[in-house]
C-alpha cells in the first residue's frame, strides 16, 4: 500500500463530499424551484440553496457547517488489508478536520468533551464488504444532526395512524414522519425507508437507500409504485423548503425491504436534508484514482 496516495485520495473524497453537492441532488432542487412562485420564501430559499452549492464548490468550503456523521462503505477485493484501510481513513478524517473541510464535530457522550480530530470510538463509521472487483469501491455519506434527529421508527400495527402490517401501513408511517419533521430536517429532503429487519438493521438499511441516485426508482415494482405514490402525497402536504410552506417538501423517497420476524414489523425512516452529501471513488491497489462515482 502506498500510504501517501491512499491518504491523499481519501482526503480528496472527504473534501468533495463536504463541498460539492452531487449533480442528481442539485438537479432535483432546480426542478423543485420551477414549481414555486417567485417572491415566496419557498422560491427564495431554494434559490439560496443553489447559490450556496455553487459557492461551496467554487471556494472549496463545507456546504453545511454540520459536517455530520461520516459513514464510509468500502467494498474491497479478497484478502485486502481492511485494518490498514481503516487506519488510513482515520488519518484522512483527522487531516480533513485540520484543513477545515470538516468541523470539530465529535463529542464524548459521557464527559461532554470535544474530539478535535473527529476520530473516536465509531467515528468515523466504517463498513467493509468484500467484492469481486480488483479495485476498492469507497463511498462516503455525510449526514448532519438536524436531519438525523427527525428520523423515526414505527412498530406496526400503530393504532394512532391506523397503520397495519401492509404497504398502506408503511405509507401512513412515512407521511406521519414527514409531517412530524416539518422543516426541521432541512426540507426538501430525501426519505430513506426500510420495511422489516430488526431495529438496528432497519435504520442501517434505510440509510443505505441514500447510495441510490435521486430520481431512480426501486427495482421492485410494488416498492417503485409506493415511492411514486408517496412523492405525490407528500407534495400535497405543502410543508415546503425549511417548513415555511411550498411544494418542495421531498426530493425523493427511497424504499428498501428486509426480511423480518413473524412478531415484528418495523418501518424505519431516515431523513436526509437537501444538503445531501454523497460521493464515491474507485481506487486501485496502490490508492490511485480509477474513477469518481456519482
Amino acid at each position: 500500500m502506498k500510504k501517501a496516495h491512499w491518504e491523499k485520495n481519501l482526503v480528496e473524497l472527504i473534501r468533495r463530499t463536504s463541498t460539492d453537492l452531487p449533480a442528481d441532488v442539485e438537479q432535483s432542487i432546480r426542478k423543485g424551484l420551477r414549481r414555486e412562485k417567485k417572491g415566496t420564501s419557498a422560491h427564495d430559499f431554494l434559490t439560496m440553496m443553489l447559490e450556496n452549492a455553487a459557492m461551496a464548490r467554487r471556494d472549496s468550503v463545507p456546504l453545511c457547517q454540520d459536517t455530520g456523521t461520516l459513514t464510509f462503505r468500502f467494498t474491497v477485493p479478497t484478502g485486502f488489508d481492511t485494518n490498514g484501510l481503516a487506519s488510513l481513513t482515520r488519518n484522512a478524517v483527522s487531516k480533513a478536520t485540520r484543513l477545515g473541510v470538516l468541523r470539530q464535530n465529535t463529542i464524548d457522550s459521557v464527559s461532554g468533551e470535544s474530539y478535535v480530530t473527529n476520530v473516536a470510538h465509531a467515528a468515523p463509521v466504517m463498513e467493509f464488504l468484500q467484492g469481486a472487483r480488483k479495485t476498492v469501491d469507497a463511498r462516503l455519506i455525510m449526514k448532519g444532526g438536524g436531519c438525523e434527529n427527525v428520523g423515526r421508527q414505527y412498530s406496526l400495527p400503530e393504532s394512532s395512524l391506523d397503520a397495519r402490517r401492509d404497504l398502506e401501513g408503511v405509507r401512513r408511517c412515512v407521511l406521519d414522519a414527514v409531517w412530524q419533521a416539518q422543516g426541521r430536517g432541512c426540507s426538501p429532503g430525501v426519505l430513506g425507508v426500510c420495511i422489516g429487519g430488526d431495529r438496528a438493521k432497519g435504520y442501517a438499511h434505510a440509510k443505505e437507500q441514500f447510495l441510490r441516485k435521486v430520481g431512480e426508482r426501486s427495482d421492485v415494482k410494488v416498492l417503485a409504485r409506493l415511492e411514486e405514490r408517496l412523492m405525490r402525497d407528500i407534495r400535497r402536504m405543502e410543508i415546503g423548503p425549511m417548513g415555511l410552506g411550498g411544494k418542495s417538501t421531498a426530493l425523493d423517497v427511497k424504499i428498501g425491504a428486509l426480511s423480518r420476524l413473524p412478531a415484528s414489523f418495523f418501518v424505519s425512516i431516515s431523513y436526509m436534508c437537501w444538503a445531501f452529501r454523497r460521493r464515491g471513488v474507485l481506487l486501485g491497489p496502490e490508492g490511485g484514482v480509477h474513477r469518481w462515482l456519482y
Binding site: 468550503v61 463545507p62 453545511c64 457547517q65 448532519g144 422543516g183 423548503p241 436534508c273
Partner: peptide
C-alpha cells in the same frame, strides 16, 4: 429563520 445548510452563503 434562515436557510439550514447554507453554510457557505451565510459565512460570506
Amino acid at each position: 429563520q434562515t436557510v439550514g445548510g447554507a453554510a457557505a452563503l451565510l459565512a460570506a
